[in-house]
């Protein structure tokens, strides 16, 4: 069973007072997220990431299409008991303390008063604000509110957790702690669906990603497939080559660039064609020793920029 499944999920808003036109915030999103995976939902600002999350949380309703979580329609009370959600830039009640807020949210899941206290305390310690538990939330900084937001999303030990820009407002240490927490959640079997601008986080954490642009899904799949597909050459490090052999290889077009990386050691950039095995065999025959051979791949950032820059089209629909 998929943890999350959307079918042609679409959301239009009407904009304009004198000439109202439908604005397509999300256009026919079809997506499956498997149980237990960390899924990155990527895209530039205004790509439709937050709209999708709000549709999944039923904070807004779809114009058409459907969204299921854990096999049931999004918004079902039973589903709500089994999920956690961190909105983008979360904000809470000014006059409650962090401990009170978490206990309040725990009470909505039906936990006993003792259980509420234990869960709230444990999670506040886990997100690193245990010492501030008795402070009213209006005195919290943005980063501290983000940590409270993450704690409240985990109060019910959810099976699926939705995180909208979880690293937002956090310092480098905070980012690392949250990355570690996401990995712990994955190890526990929890499905993590998170939206982010920070591609490095997605590269470190996700097994699969979806890239959105202008309200449309551009591509989705395993990160390893996406980036392996984009191998654009090889880096060969060899030792024991003479300048004459290198010059001849360059002249034949087998080597694109040569960089000296140590005494009698060179890094060679090889094209995709001819295959690296052939060039390597020729160089070994002329006295070279292999140190390493590594594919040169596009980074997720390169891939992302390539995909997103290709997405065009207006997001306004002409009304009939």
């Amino acid at each position: 069973m998929d943890a999350i499944r959307t079918e042609a999920l679409t959301k239009h808003y009407t904009v304009g007072f004198w000439r109202p036109r439908p604005y397509v915030a999300l256009d026919g999103l079809t997506l499956q997220v498997q149980t237990g995976e960390v899924f990155g939902f990527l895209g530039p600002n205004g790509a439709g990431k937050t709209t999708t999350l709000k549709l999944l949380m039923q904070l807004i309703f779809p114009t058409s299409g459907r969204a299921d979580i854990l096999g049931k329609p999004a918004g079902d009370i039973d589903v709500k008991r089994r999920i956690g959600y961190l909105p983008e830039n979360p904000y809470f009640y000014d006059y409650l303390t962090a401990q009170e807020l978490l206990e309040y949210f725990a009470s909505l899941f039906g936990y006993s008063p003792a259980e509420r206290r234990t869960r709230a305390s444990r999670l506040l310690d886990e997100v690193g604000i245990g010492a501030e538990r008795r402070l009213q939330l209006r005195k919290f900084s943005k980063g501290m509110l983000q940590r409270v937001g993450i704690a409240q999303a985990l109060i019910n030990e959810p099976e699926v957790v939705f995180l909208d820009e979880p690293m937002s407002g956090l310092d480098p240490i905070g980012r690392r702690e949250i990355r570690e927490m996401i990995l712990r959640l994955r190890d526990r079997g929890c499905t993590v669906f998170f939206s982010s601008h920070v591609l490095a986080d997605a590269e470190t954490l996700c097994s699969r990603v979806a890239i959105m642009a202008k309200g449309r899904l551009v591509t989705a799949g395993a990160l390893s497939d996406m980036l392996a597909f984009q191998v654009r050459g090889w880096e060969l490090v060899v030792s024991g080559l003479t300048d004459a052999v290198l010059a001849a290889a360059k002249a034949r077009g087998d080597v694109m660039r040569v960089t000296m990386v140590g005494p009698a050691r060179h890094a060679l950039d090889l094209p995709l064609d001819p295959p690296p095995e052939k060039t390597l065999a020729a160089l070994i025959a002329q006295g070279a020793c292999l140190v390493s051979l590594t594919p040169i791949r596009d980074t997720l950032e390169d891939f992302f920029v390539q995909q997103v820059s290709g997405a065009g089209g207006s997001r306004f629909r002409e009304s009939a």
Partner: peptide
């Protein structure tokens, strides 16, 4: 306005 509803409504309540 303060967006506190975003964390509350996804909790198990109608």
């Amino acid at each position: 306005e303060k967006r506190s509803i975003y964390t509350l409504l996804p909790k198990p309540m109608r």
